[in-house]
Nucleic acid binder design. Sequence first.
DNA 1: TGTACATCAGTGAACGCGCGTTCACTGATGTAC
DNA 2: TGTACATCAGTGAACGCGCGTTCACTGATGTAC
Lengths: 221, 221
Amino acid sequence: MTGQRFADAAPEDLPKGARARNRWGQGDRLRTEILVAAGQLLGELGTVDGLTLRGVARHVGIAPASIYAHFPDKSGLVAALVEYEYQRLVELMRRAEAAESDGDPLGRLRAQLHTFCHYSLANPGSYRLIFVLRPQEDDDRRTSAHTLVDRLAGGLLACEAAGARLRLPAERAAIVLVVGAHGRVAISHVRSVTATSSPTDAERQVFGFVDDLLSLVFETP
Amino acid sequence: MTGQRFADAAPEDLPKGARARNRWGQGDRLRTEILVAAGQLLGELGTVDGLTLRGVARHVGIAPASIYAHFPDKSGLVAALVEYEYQRLVELMRRAEAAESDGDPLGRLRAQLHTFCHYSLANPGSYRLIFVLRPQEDDDRRTSAHTLVDRLAGGLLACEAAGARLRLPAERAAIVLVVGAHGRVAISHVRSVTATSSPTDAERQVFGFVDDLLSLVFETP
DNA sequence: TGTACATCAGTGAACGCGCGTTCACTGATGTAC
DNA sequence: TGTACATCAGTGAACGCGCGTTCACTGATGTAC
């Protein structure tokens, strides 16, 4: 309940059980609280269909009707949730890339891939919402998967510029990486329902798979 | 939802004599009819959560209560549906393999992979049900994905025996293939919601991807 | 300064709906004697 | 042979439930004069 996902959400003294009404002019805070709660519930339920306005309201500690001050209806909430979670993922990937040295393009690429896998494993519901069940999208906008392919293709080109040789054109190779990671993570989601391997185990396996993929994509020296 | 206002009276005008009652001793036929209808609805809806007993009954042309003569409850129906669809897929793959010559192990492998992709594209709902949302599974039974990896690993070993050289151990390579195909198909499902490319186009792209994957897995001669 | 009013954040009860499930039943078809 | 009965395939109406959504409202906090 107090698990904060974002650094900017800084609730100091949250009364357990009873929710304190926001101050004047800060009504927008509830909007974020609702999105965070929806994201958490999505993570627990694993699918967007089990997600209900009443459930989200219960989780936040408000009346169902209060949601309508911030979102037009249920599908509006879900659309906002997609955007919110996707921005979160992109931000994480950008930070992971920036944390690696400029002189190590392969390291920057791997860091992004691993961050993508880490997010996907840690937030299966949101991940599926964004990449599998993605609802209708504006025609002129690119899908999330598309954006991701672009990011990774850029990373691959940087590797080429640094001397590495690809066995496929950069964009095709990027698709292999995104799609492979996507598939591997999905399998891991299925497994984790039954198997009792630790999340770290799952992560190690997925990272291993992604590294396999990376090594396949490049010429062996 | 927002259309609730108009849903005041929407009687399903099914032709009354559309379905004839089964004869004595053939009551089991309805069981299959129900599974087929559920599979079709799943294909249309794309997700198992939109699947309702009442919807299935409507589709078959029977009373909702009639389902209970063949399945204990909704989850029982879904479990039977998983089994039914998975057996269908395996049977298709077996036939595709058998249709290729014994002397062409790579052809046999490709045929199976393509069949898998074809089924996944043609039956997105069932595919997701089997491989993504797979419900609880007996501990001593292997998952569908597992069985598939075994099949393909066998195919890869046959290729090795015929002289091809793998860049990864057979099972790891099989995982790359299954997972890659899985991921590529999932992406294609997302795309097809928005993009207007023909199903044949999607198929060609997926086949191309899978062939890329195959070529990556083997040493270049 | 006090006070009237506007605005805000959020509530509680109600609505109509489709859902899964139960239960007593119906009418056709087979079987025993 | 006829007829009583068992069995089968399937029905129709009802139930309680949680859902999304609406609407009139409440009480706290700000602002104008």
